[in-house]
Amino acid sequence: MALALLGIFGNGENDLRAIGRLVFGIFALWGVSFLGFVLIYYSQGSVAFANVSQGMSPAMRFQIEENLNLHRPLLDQYQTWLFQVLRGDFSTSLMSGESVSSIIAERIPYTLILGGSAFVLLIFFSIILAFLSLWSSSLDRCIAFLGMGFVSLPTFSLGLLLILFLSVKWSVFPSSGASDIGMEDQISNRLLHLALPVMTLVISHLGIFTQFVRTTLIDALNQEFIQFGLARGLSLFYIYMHWVLKYALSPIVAYFSASFVSFMMGTYVVEGVFSYGGIGQTLINGLIFKDYPLVLAILLMSFASVLVVNFLADCLCAKLNQGRV
């Protein structure tokens, strides 16, 4: 399948570059898993506290960790986990005893819905606002001021501000959860719960994305073929939609794919702020209680998704560059 996708590039140099990135990605997956395991191994906390609300004696903590084979040396634990993963078994969660695969399968739809809808809206609004900033200098200053002002706020701070005003003070949207109890099947209720997390993600990234798209569009407008189109008497709308956007689309796609990592991490943080119940909240709980099978599975899945998104973006950019002036 990878070779079929590589056929999109159309020349040997790009093919070799894409293959090299895939090979690097495989080794990077191993490196991420090992580094993550080392950091979890030496971090504070213990899975023994996951299901115990009161304090426990050191002897009881040691006994629980010994029962879970956490007393073994680092390399022995990592080797056992790695061989299980290579066989397709992500083991079980140390906190709950459930299969890690089943936990991820249950909660990943929430993350995909939240992150996917927010990313699509972010792309749409950044392009619209970038075009608006080109039409009016006053709009340009206003968009830049508001956008960069919200970007300067940490994601969790912006989420808490939206909860304060739109949920606590004005009661427009619910403040947490994916749905109300007993209303899980109502799409309208789920959309209401989705509103604040999506707004947080979009607003926190919109300023930077809009400024990049604006800069790219200005670069496209400075090309000679734009003056040729104006000399032919073509309408500005036609030139913007068919020439400017087509020329700028390749760097825009490349930038959006490169920013996917920070956007995904922001999604995980937002899930924790709004108790949305997705992969992000699960990852945070796993880190707190050193549930390394669950944490490493989520890290590998996240890193693999980044590789896939960047590879597909490379394919799309190569296709767009074939028709770029």
Rank of each mutant, 00 (worst) to 15 (best):
H205W: 13
G266L: 12
N51V: 01
H242T: 14
L153Q: 06
F37W: 07
M60T: 13
P251T: 10
E271R: 12
I218K: 12
S53H: 09
L114M: 12
S152Y: 01
G115V: 09
T80H: 10
F34K: 07
P73D: 04
I252W: 04
R232T: 03
I203W: 04
G280E: 12
L112R: 06
V32Y: 02
G20R: 12
R232M: 14
W243H: 13
S91V: 05
F274W: 06
Q63N: 11
S157I: 13
L158E: 01
G12C: 02
V295T: 07
L22P: 00
L153W: 11
G323I: 14
L245F: 14
V213R: 04
G97C: 02
L74N: 06
S117T: 15
L160N: 09
I103A: 08
A258F: 11
T92A: 09
D15H: 13
L153P: 00
G280T: 10
T200D: 03
L194W: 05
A231D: 09
Q322W: 12
M148C: 02
Q322E: 15
I284H: 04
M60I: 13
S46R: 08
L300A: 01
F27L: 12
S188C: 04
Y78I: 06
A48N: 06
Q63P: 01
M1K: 10
V85S: 03
P58R: 11
G45H: 06
F274R: 04
I181Y: 13
A105C: 01
A195P: 00
A105N: 09
G159L: 10
I252E: 08
V120P: 02
S46A: 02
S43C: 05
T267I: 09
I279K: 07
T282D: 02
S102D: 15
A130Q: 09
V213K: 09
M56L: 14
Y238S: 08
V172A: 09
S91Y: 07
S250T: 10
V85F: 03
F90M: 09
N67E: 15
A318C: 05
N222F: 01
V172C: 06
I187Y: 07
G31D: 03
I108G: 03
L217T: 06
N321E: 15
L146E: 00
I239V: 07
F260L: 12
E13G: 08
L206W: 07
V100L: 02
F83T: 15
R232V: 03
H193D: 02
L191H: 04
A59L: 12
A220G: 05
E224V: 03
I123F: 15
G277D: 06
N67H: 13
L320E: 02
G31E: 02
M264W: 13
G280F: 01
Y255M: 12
R17H: 07
S96Q: 07
E98N: 13
S257F: 04
V306E: 05
I203Q: 07
Y247N: 14
A48F: 00
L296S: 04
F90E: 08
V261A: 14
S93P: 01
I143L: 10
L158Q: 08
L300C: 04
